[in-house]
């Protein structure tokens, strides 16, 4: 028994090892590094041209501040506060976006009903939601949550609405001809066909939510990444502003490559690889 257990443990550790090695290989081969390196060279050049500090601090000096913020643990405290607000707001936005999107996509009346409100929601800049929320709700939790909800839900609703509209009627007719049960159709047909639109909705909605959340914290919060950016601004610490902004960007990259891309890859196994189609 113990032998069998140790064998299976070895196997699983080998599998994990292989996965990590594959992931690291993918990371090294990632073509995006080149663009990042070019941006860093450009940044360094501008910084040198302007004297190396002051208005445009060099990437190395900024990295040093980022390191300090990370090592002190302060970043994670502020990130925790921002994430809590973000998750509450985004969950509400996702729920509202899903309801409005499904209603608009499936019924002509609801499409007409929500159409203009959605367009209005899409066109207003995040800054407006952030400012209004702070004015109306003050510095409590409701301000970022409401700003995220109203800024983010139209983007989610649009994606979901288009997904519902694009649903293959022929396949739905097939399920009707074979008298497949309602729940089986929802699980095996409707949910998988909505999934790419759902993932697109999450990506777009989450990006908007992040930005609005930080913006609201800049205007009216006593903690969070946005608050730290404002604090550094008041101190005229450009390095601090850059360090906190970049760390915030890195979190987005981690979410992108750690959650969204693997999820997309997992749920898109049934699609031909683009390299198989375009040769």
């Amino acid at each position: 028994m113990s032998v069998a257990l140790s064998v299976s443990t070895n196997q699983s550790s080998t599998t994990v090892g292989k996965r990590v090695a594959k992931y690291l290989k993918g990371l090294v081969n990632h073509k995006g590094w080149l663009a990042i390196v070019l941006v860093l060279i450009f940044w360094q050049t501008i910084s040198l041209l302007l004297g190396g500090h002051g208005l445009v601090p060099s990437p190395i000096r900024t990295a040093a501040v980022m390191w300090d913020v990370l090592v002190s643990g302060e970043f994670f405290v502020q990130l925790g506060d921002s994430m809590a607000r973000l998750l509450i707001g985004f969950t509400l936005a996702m729920t509202m976006g899903l309801i409005v999107g499904v209603m608009s996509g499936s019924r002509w009346f609801w499409n007409e009903f929500f159409k203009d409100v959605i367009v209005l929601g899409l066109s207003l800049p995040g800054l407006v939601y952030a400012l209004l929320s702070v004015v109306i709700f003050g510095t409590n939790l409701m301000a970022p949550v409401m700003a995220i909800l109203f800024a983010s839900y139209p983007f989610i609703a649009v994606n979901i609405r288009e997904g519902v509209k694009a649903m293959d009627k022929d396949i739905l007719d097939m399920t009707q001809a074979y008298k497949v049960g309602k729940w089986k159709v929802i699980k095996n047909v409707i949910m998988p066909s909505l999934l790419p639109h759902f993932l697109a909705a999450i990506r777009t909605g989450f990006t908007i939510a992040w930005k609005v959340s930080v913006l609201t914290e800049v205007f009216g919060a006593t903690s969070g990444i946005g608050y730290m950016i404002r604090f550094n601004f008041q101190m005229f610490a450009v390095r601090g502003i850059l360090a906190w902004s970049l760390l915030f960007g890195f979190v987005m990259l981690v979410i992108e490559y750690g959650i969204l891309v693997p999820a997309e890859r997992r749920f898109a196994r049934w699609r031909p690889n683009i390299s198989e189609v375009v040769k």
Binding site: D170, I171, D173, M174, N188, V189, P192, S193, F267, W270, R271
Partner: peptide
């Protein structure tokens, strides 16, 4: 057309 579920 076959009307197969492409994800299955």
């Amino acid at each position: 057309s076959p009307r197969l579920l492409p994800w299955q």
